[in-house]
Deep mutational scan, measured.
Amino acid sequence: QTVHVKGVQYHFPNPEEAVKFALKVAKDLGGRVEFHGDEIHVE
């Protein structure tokens, strides 16, 4: 599972961890989380 944050990719073997990370980052940055297939983008 890959999380993209402002052009940087973070790889997580566990999808659940990836989602938790993405939600935390989005909250910290005041952004939103978008799901694109296997990828999660924080915009």
Results as ranks from 00 to 15, higher is better:
7 G>S: 05
39 E>Q: 12
43 E>M: 15
4 H>Y: 15
8 V>W: 08
16 E>Y: 11
31 G>A: 11
41 H>E: 03
37 G>K: 07
40 I>V: 05
10 Y>W: 06
30 G>F: 07
27 K>R: 11
12 F>G: 00
21 F>S: 01
22 A>W: 03
26 A>V: 05
8 V>D: 05
29 L>M: 12
5 V>S: 03
43 E>L: 15
11 H>Y: 14
34 E>V: 15
9 Q>H: 09
36 H>R: 14
37 G>A: 07
42 V>T: 02
25 V>R: 06
13 P>F: 10
34 E>L: 13
7 G>D: 06
25 V>D: 00
20 K>I: 09
21 F>Y: 08
7 G>V: 02
15 P>L: 15
26 A>Y: 02
42 V>W: 03
25 V>N: 03
2 T>S: 07
13 P>N: 13
12 F>Y: 03
25 V>Q: 07
10 Y>S: 02
34 E>G: 06
2 T>E: 03
43 E>F: 15
5 V>R: 02
2 T>R: 07
21 F>N: 01
22 A>I: 03
20 K>L: 10
30 G>R: 08
22 A>E: 00
33 V>A: 04
9 Q>Y: 11
43 E>A: 12
39 E>V: 11
33 V>F: 04
36 H>C: 12
24 K>N: 09
37 G>T: 05
31 G>S: 05
25 V>K: 07
23 L>A: 08
24 K>H: 08
26 A>P: 00
24 K>V: 07
20 K>M: 10
31 G>D: 03
13 P>H: 11
2 T>Y: 08
32 R>M: 07
1 Q>K: 14
6 K>M: 14
10 Y>R: 03
22 A>V: 02
10 Y>E: 00
11 H>Q: 08
16 E>V: 10
43 E>Y: 15
32 R>W: 15
33 V>M: 07
9 Q>G: 05
29 L>D: 04
27 K>I: 09
3 V>C: 03
16 E>R: 09
23 L>Q: 11
1 Q>M: 15
4 H>G: 03
19 V>T: 07
19 V>E: 07
36 H>K: 13
36 H>A: 07
41 H>L: 08
39 E>Y: 08
24 K>L: 10
3 V>K: 00
29 L>G: 05
30 G>P: 06
12 F>R: 00
32 R>S: 08
33 V>Q: 01
35 F>Y: 12
35 F>A: 04
13 P>Q: 13
25 V>F: 06
14 N>F: 06
39 E>D: 11
38 D>N: 13
28 D>V: 13
32 R>G: 04
27 K>V: 08
17 E>N: 06
38 D>G: 13
43 E>H: 14
12 F>P: 00
25 V>P: 00
14 N>S: 14
37 G>N: 09
41 H>I: 10
34 E>I: 15
2 T>V: 13
40 I>R: 01
36 H>T: 07
8 V>H: 09
16 E>D: 10
16 E>T: 10
6 K>A: 13
31 G>W: 14
29 L>E: 05
10 Y>D: 00
3 V>N: 00
5 V>E: 00
